[in-house]
Nucleic acid binder design. Structure first.
Length: 468
RNA sequence: GGAGAGGUGGCGGAGUGGUCGAACGCGUCGGUCUCGAAAACCGAAGUACCGGCAACGGUACCGUGGGUUCGAAUCCCACCCUCUCCGCCA
């Protein structure tokens, strides 16, 4: 589970796997009636031709992820599959030709019996060859589906989050005397209720009330307005329930089903809007000049957080349900690196405007999510915890998801199609942002000042305090 | 939920079981014409995989999966989806 270091992952659908799941007692996911999902004929996540052309590079990438070399076994399988395919196709070609002649012979009144016999003999052998081809193909797909994306060249090597590299630090944590944590503040204000949430839904849910509920809404509104007006993202209101195919497309399935909630009739609750937004371009061929495509959405996110029992149990840091504003970009391959920086900057802008201190780190190879080839995490300063905590994760997935969901584009005047690049990032997590505002803007009397940029969204309110 | 209709290429829309990867129209692209454009005319053009240095050849795909057949877009079965009407509903 921790194999690829799926992290707490504010952006990947996967929940945290930093925590060794086996140690904790019965972290039973609250899901019932899990519906079995059938492997959707996946597009290969990895380019077999690229592996054929340069197996060493592929294995080198795996090694940086801490994985054993796989190219020899993959190529061997691939070779056998192609041989079977060729044999199968040749048989079909002969059958087609014979069938054509049979029609011809019958029309001309000639004896078609020898041809009929030949086809009959062919059909004896055909199914076995087809079976062989399918079996090898499925085997190959299964292997490829379980291999994470290869890290980009400029991603630092490392084992876990301690090896992440800080790239910048913005803002200075204010000296808050005797800082309180968000849940202390919220409960004292009477606007954040965990007991009420427990009564309704159990652990890892929160009820917000009054001005705090409104602050949450204001934060999300502010983010959406900023991204749409200033960064050219199109606002989307997507489904929150998706099918297997969509979950495969962004690589939540097949490996991370445990982290997702599923309805009794087989829908998956989205763990992030990345899933519906990115899959919007699934199975399509885009024009080069409509790229980059930039999409944003504020949605609830649902995570079963299996395996993270005992972690961040107090407060609303880690919830089964939270709001997040998501950014998704679909780009040409040559655009994705620049787009990654741009997206990260857009997310950082939110924190800058809110006056929240943060730092941005490049995740090392050991801490990156399954689908990412490079990831920046943005960590916001939480005075109550005296720590930087993840509030956004911006990943360039290269063509990994695109190949999977068959999202291609065609360059102008070009005949061939190629896979687009997909990027996603939180811009940013609304729940955690609320926490950050509360802790950074807390006053000695327990009231919370409203950041300037949010005042218009709060009808000019200056502060949230005990008596309104 | 009940009743009916239908799912074919970017779109619309044909398609007696055999040369249909698919008529025709629109749209798109290239060209002719033009000072330029429009119109007109000529031509090109699906996706993916396999083999090949290439030219090119082959295979699959007409919602999905099975079946019948020497041969299936065309016949049979199951499923999915869409549309219309009725009911219910934010």
């Amino acid at each position: 589970m921790t194999l690829f270091g799926e992290r707490d992952g504010y952006d990947q659908g996967g929940a945290s796997a930093r925590d060794p799941p086996s140690r904790w007692t019965a972290p039973v996911p609250p899901t019932i009636n899990r519906v079995p999902f059938t492997p959707v004929t996946p597009g290969p996540m990895h380019d077999l031709r690229a592996i054929r052309d340069n197996p060493e590079a592929f294995d080198r990438g795996l090694a940086r992820r801490g994985l054993a070399p796989l190219s020899p076994s993959i190529l061997e399988l691939d070779q056998r599959r192609r041989a079977a395919q060729t044999a199968f196709q040749e048989m079909q070609a002969r059958r087609n030709e014979a069938s054509r002649l049979i029609g011809q012979y019958k029309k001309d009144g000639k004896d078609a019996q020898p041809l009929l016999d030949e086809v009959a003999a062919l059909k004896e052998r055909l199914p076995a060859t087809e079976e062989e081809e399918k079996r090898l193909g499925a085997e190959l797909d299964a292997i490829l589906a379980g291999i994470p994306n290869l890290p980009a060249d400029d991603v630092p090597d490392g084992k876990d989050e301690h090896d992440n590299v800080e790239v910048r630090r913005v803002g200075t944590p204010a000296a808050v005397p005797a800082p309180k944590q968000h849940f202390e503040l919220g409960e004292a204000l009477g606007l954040m209720q965990f007991d009420a949430a427990a009564k309704l839904s159990g652990a890892r849910f929160t009820v917000l009330r009054g001005q705090l509920a409104r602050l949450e809404r204001a934060i999300g509104d502010f983010m959406l307005d900023t991204h749409t007006r200033e960064f050219g993202y199109e606002e989307v209101s997507p489904p929150l329930l998706v099918k297997d195919e969509a979950a495969y497309g962004t690589a939540q399935l097949p490996k991370f089903a445990e982290d997702l909630f599923q309805t009794t009739n087989g829908y998956w609750l989205i763990p992030t809007a990345e899933v519906p937004l990115t899959n919007l371009v699934a199975d399509s061929i885009l024009d080069a000049d409509e790229l980059p495509l930039r999409l944003t959405a504020r949605t609830p996110c649902f995570r079963s957080e299996a395996g993270s029992a005992g972690r961040d149990t107090r407060g609303m840091i880690r919830q089964h349900q939270f709001y997040k504003v998501e950014l998704v970009s679909i780009t040409r391959p040559d655009q994705s690196q620049a787009e990654h920086e741009r997206m990260t900057a857009a997310a950082e802008t939110i924190l800058t405007r809110l006056g929240l201190p943060f730092r941005t780190v490049t995740l090392c190879t050991g801490d990156m999510g399954f689908a990412a080839q490079k990831t920046y995490d943005i960590e916001v300063w939480l005075p109550g915890q005296d720590a930087y905590r993840e509030i956004s994760s911006c990943s360039n997935c290269g063509d990994f998801q695109a190949r999977r969901m068959k999202a291609r584009f065609r360059a102008k005047g070009d005949k061939a199609t190629q896979a687009v690049h997909t990027l996603n990032g939180s811009g940013v997590a609304v729940g955690r942002c609320l926490i950050a505002v509360m802790e950074n803007y807390q006053q000695a009397d327990g009231s919370i000042l409203i950041p300037d940029v949010l005042k218009p969204y709060m009808n000019g309110l200056e502060r949230i305090s005990r008596n309104g």
